[in-house]
């Protein structure tokens, strides 16, 4: 257990020290949210209707774009070699890294959402519904992205390739995340139905992402 605490705490520290990326994700999220009205127009009624969708898209891109350094940084400085020779199962080690990453990038996105919801003219209830769905859904994005981060290392390609590989996998999360947010606003479907499916997707992604990322790193050894 202490090995996992160690890697978790190290990644948290790295994220908040100079050069760490915590905060950039939220900034990127804000910029996407701000750009949307310039493309769509400042019609408040329209923005309120598509607000949850834009917030979700922004959070989705922000979670994935911050991920490409998650494992690549460790691969470049040789840390990954030592992590692989550790006695901790690789699945748990990458899960600890992903958890630390979610706490420093995914969670702030959910926390910032009620504030950014104001820009989309969402009312209190809708903003908090979107924030709640992001709180439940961003772990799924991080753990699916974990697979992408691992693939980026084994394929030695970063950035956009990761996003291209992972974005299709995030479609269900997006569908049920936005559906749950809209359900809270319009009340056409009960909120609980899409929301529980979203939670289920997150739990499944925790497992799939972790095992797939570890398998990808192991098979990538050459």
């Amino acid at each position: 257990m202490s090995a996992l605490t160690a890697i978790f705490m190290r990644d948290l520290r790295l994220a908040v020290r100079v050069g760490g990326g915590a905060g950039i994700g939220v900034l990127f999220f804000l910029i996407v949210v701000v750009l949307a009205p310039f493309a769509i127009g400042p019609d408040l009624a329209l923005l309120a209707r598509i607000g949850p969708a834009i917030l979700w898209l922004g959070a989705l891109l922000a979670s994935l774009l911050t991920l490409d350094r998650l494992i690549a940084a460790d691969a470049e400085d040789g840390s990954l070699d030592l992590i692989l020779t550790g006695r901790t199962p690789l699945e748990l080690a990458v899960a600890a890294k992903a958890l630390a990453h979610w706490l420093t990038t995914g969670l702030p996105l959910a926390i910032a959402t009620p504030l950014f919801g104001l820009l989309m003219n969402l009312d209190m209830q809708a903003s908090f519904a979107v924030a709640l769905t992001l709180l439940a859904g961003t772990p799924a994005l991080t753990f699916l992205g974990l697979l992408g981060a691992a693939l980026a290392v084994t394929l030695r390609r970063g950035g956009l390739l990761l996003t291209v590989l992972i974005l299709p996998l995030t479609v269900p999360v997006l569908i049920f995340g936005v559906a749950a947010s809209n359900a809270a606003v319009t009340g056409s479907v009960p909120f609980a139905m899409p929301f529980t499916i979203l939670c289920a997707l997150t739990l499944a992604s925790l497992v799939i992402g972790t095992f797939a990322a570890a398998a990808s790193l192991r098979h990538g050894m050459e």
């Binding site: 790295l14 760490g20 400085d77 040789g78 840390s79 070699d81 030592l82």
Partner: peptide
Amino acid sequence: EQAHYLGHQDALKPSL
């Protein structure tokens, strides 16, 4: 798991 590999890279984080 009983070996310690010392490669060309030093596996250090500059900000720690």
